[in-house]
Simulated assay, not measured.
Amino acid sequence: MTGRVVVIGVGNPFRRDDGAGLAVIRALRADPPRHALLAESDGEPGRMLDLWDRSDSVVVADAVHAHPGCPGRLHTLSAQRTTEFAKRPASSHALGLGETFALASALDRMPREVTVHAVEGADFGLGRGLSAPVAAALPGLIARVLESVGRTYDSLAGAADSPGSPR
């Protein structure tokens, strides 16, 4: 099995809490997880699709709007669940992750596995820096991303070691 673990932080650092996904990637660069490719994205679907191959496992970190919301609350979603949210705006991007995954599916470019970790934002206005609730939730968001990377890498290593796998 030839796949990578691709970790994508999505956001805009000039829209306050929308920079949470990017903050995750920047924190991980200080001590990067083994065997993971770290990438930042503004969420534009075409650029997102260019970050992965169909055989990759993708872990996404992002900020979301929720109504009613609880700023700082963490969510973990599958690609299928994220695509269900495409019917209603849940992202601060022009097109959200749901639309990106729907497009990837239509183009037969869906990665093998996708996990989305998101934090509910409080402030998506112009400016830099995360709101207090999102900044406080950032270590938990990073921990969830690292857990997903580890679990995915373990599953890739197990598949490579299984009988009948090419070595």
Rank of each mutant, 00 (worst) to 15 (best):
A36G: 13
A36T: 10
L38R: 09
L38Q: 09
L38F: 12
L38H: 10
A39G: 07
A39V: 15
A39M: 12
A39Y: 04
E40D: 14
E40K: 10
E40R: 05
S41H: 02
S41R: 07
S41E: 07
D42L: 07
D42K: 04
G43F: 06
G43H: 00
G43I: 06
E44G: 14
E44R: 15
E44T: 15
P45S: 03
P45K: 03
G46F: 13
G46K: 13
R47D: 13
R47W: 03
R47K: 12
M48D: 09
M48I: 02
L49Y: 04
L49R: 02
L49V: 09
D50F: 03
D50A: 14
L51H: 08
L51I: 05
W52A: 04
W52Q: 02
W52M: 13
D53Q: 13
D53W: 12
D53V: 11
D53E: 13
D53F: 12
R54W: 04
R54L: 03
R54H: 07
R54D: 11
D56Q: 04
D56S: 12
S57F: 09
S57K: 00
S57Y: 08
V58Y: 02
V58M: 05
V58E: 00
V59R: 00
V59E: 15
A61F: 03
A61R: 00
A61S: 08
D62H: 06
D62N: 01
A63P: 03
A63G: 01
A63E: 02
A63H: 02
V64P: 02
H65K: 12
H65M: 08
H65I: 14
H65F: 12
A66M: 11
A66S: 11
A66F: 05
A66E: 10
H67R: 14
H67L: 12
H67T: 14
H67D: 11
P68C: 01
P68V: 06
P68S: 01
P68A: 00
G69C: 08
G69T: 06
G69A: 05
G69I: 10
C70E: 15
C70V: 15
P71V: 09
P71C: 02
G72L: 02
G72E: 08
R73W: 00
R73Q: 13
L74V: 01
L74G: 11
L74I: 08
L74R: 03
H75S: 04
H75M: 11
H75Y: 11
H75N: 06
H75L: 08
T76Q: 07
T76K: 02
T76A: 13
L77W: 14
L77A: 10
L77M: 14
L77P: 00
L77R: 09
S78Q: 00
S78I: 11
S78V: 06
A79K: 04
A79N: 08
A79D: 14
A79L: 12
